[in-house]
Simulated scan of single mutants.
Amino acid sequence: MLNRYKIAEARKAKGWNQQELAEKIGTTQQVISRYESGDRDPKASVIAAMSSALGVTVSYLLGMDEDPNVIQMRRSPSHPMPVVGRIAAGTPREAIYQTDETHSVPDDLWQAHSGGFWLIVSGNSMNRLFAEGTLVLIDPDEEVRNGDVAVVFVNGDDATLKRVYFDGETVRLHPDSYDPEYIDRVIDRSDPDAPDVRIVGKAVSYAAPDGWRA
């Protein structure tokens, strides 16, 4: 059986979340989660693909030896980034509040998103992607494109995390949820009575709460 801790260790040493590793090898975040938890054993071809993507040996992933690449990555510096507050992944809540907390990220993630900040997910409207309590890294300098997950202010004081779609003057906020009660919200910015919509930033990484399984 593949040592599940070696997958997670190598992935975290690269500064990747499960979704990023999944995209590298052509699978889903849920599958990576099952590999890491030991609920599912990957095929030899998948082990080879993970070895190549993570830059480690197959023997390392199998728990047979250490890998100097991972040892070096462990020594890489990390940087604290601010945890700004909670973000609704459900009905919008009042504007994000400030906290004194931080959560560290690997050097390469910090270099790519040094102006970013963490938000804590509250609610279930994005639970296909993020469990309640997940830390999501938001970069206000990243362009938000059609289909990206982003933090949006609605009416100035309501902040929500949704997948965002643009069609001319229309903005559609799409919940990515297992719960069918959550539906799209469509806002036509050409309508003078429509609420004001402002994109705060793009979700670029996340850290799942302890003990969560997809």
Rank of each mutant, 00 (worst) to 15 (best):
V121L: 08
V154F: 01
S45H: 10
R74C: 11
N127G: 15
V200A: 05
A48F: 01
R74Y: 08
Y35P: 14
V152C: 07
V46G: 01
V197G: 05
D184F: 01
K162I: 07
R163T: 13
W118T: 08
D176M: 13
E20H: 10
R185D: 12
D167I: 03
A207F: 04
V31Q: 15
A44Y: 00
W212F: 11
D139V: 00
P82S: 15
K43Y: 06
R198D: 02
E20S: 09
E101S: 11
R172G: 11
A131E: 14
D100L: 02
G38M: 05
R86G: 08
F130M: 09
P68V: 04
V70S: 04
G90A: 15
E20K: 10
L135M: 03
L54H: 13
R172E: 08
V152D: 07
I138E: 00
F117T: 02
K14S: 13
S125T: 12
N146E: 07
D139I: 01
W110Y: 11
R40Y: 03
S59E: 14
G15D: 04
Q72I: 14
E36V: 04
T102L: 06
L109M: 12
R93M: 15
R172S: 09
N127V: 12
I32G: 08
G156A: 06
I120Y: 04
V121D: 05
R11Y: 04
R34F: 04
R172I: 13
G15Y: 02
I96S: 03
L135N: 07
D65I: 15
D210C: 07
I120N: 03
R4D: 07
D193K: 14
G26W: 01
P140R: 00
V186S: 08
Y97M: 14
S104Q: 08
R4Y: 09
G211T: 15
Y182H: 12
D191C: 05
H113L: 01
P180S: 13
D158G: 14
Q19D: 08
E132K: 06
D191R: 02
